[in-house]
Design a protein around this nucleic acid. Structure first.
Length: 200
DNA sequence: TCGTCGATCTACT
DNA sequence: GTAGATCGACGAG
């Protein structure tokens, strides 16, 4: 059921980001399983991508996770408040990552509501990368954990979308990246209510 | 050592 | 529509 190690070791991060659409992401944290299927991703293409933390082979305590072999999680803090969850891909030394920006929740919705401090299910529960991490209980404590573990993993349940139902557009919040900000490295399911900023 | 600012979200006006 | 939250990474000095 879990996506095999071989999927993550592939070197075409843009293709992998698109492939993750429709895959199921689960966490088992605090004795509760939560998750859903991925409806929005962004690819970060290693040392040549100005939008990536690892641009220009920048190796720091934070980014070293991205330089490890694919198939692990990269979790970091943004704006001092939000933790973001990425899937590290490719071979050791090549810092590719895929940001999970939104999922459609299917399991453990009660738990996710509690973590998000919400009473009723609304589309913003897992809409945007900070929200996804919070709803799933993901924090920097599980940075670099294996996606073959029983804490955090991705499954293929046979759900897939046609090319025409997946939009490929420029990434969000990376204006500082110059011409790389224009690359169509963001993928999402057209019309899905959990997608953040559907029209850009 | 210090100052700047970010792969964002929420609560307000 | 817009401001505030809140902290670690990074480059300048």
């Amino acid at each position: 059921m879990k996506l095999p190690e071989s999927f993550y070791i592939g070197t075409n991060v843009v293709y992998q980001a698109k492939s993750l659409i429709g895959k199921y992401l689960f966490t088992s944290i605090d004795n509760a399983i939560t998750g859903g299927y991925i409806v929005e991703t962004e690819a970060y293409n290693g040392v040549i991508d100005k939008a990536s933390h690892a641009y220009g082979n920048r190796l720091t305590p934070r980014t070293q996770t991205m330089f490890m072999q694919g198939g692990i999680a990269y979790v970091y803090l943004c704006y001092g408040i939000h933790e973001m969850f990425n899937v590290v891909t490719s071979v050791k030394g090549q810092p590719h990552a895929i940001l999970i920006r939104a999922i459609q929740p299917t399991d453990g919705i009660e738990i996710m509501l509690f973590r998000r401090n919400m009473q009723t299910l609304k589309s913003n529960i897992t809409q945007g990368p900070g929200s996804v991490a919070k709803a799933l209980g993901i924090s920097r404590a599980i940075n670099a954990i294996s996606l073959q573990s029983d804490t955090l993993w991705i499954e293929d349940r046979g759900l897939s979308f046609e090319d025409q139902d997946i939009a490929a557009v420029p990434r969000v919040g990376v204006d500082y990246a110059g011409e790389d900000a224009l690359l169509p490295y963001r993928f999402y399911v057209k019309g899905n209510p959990y997608v953040s900023k559907p029209n850009k």
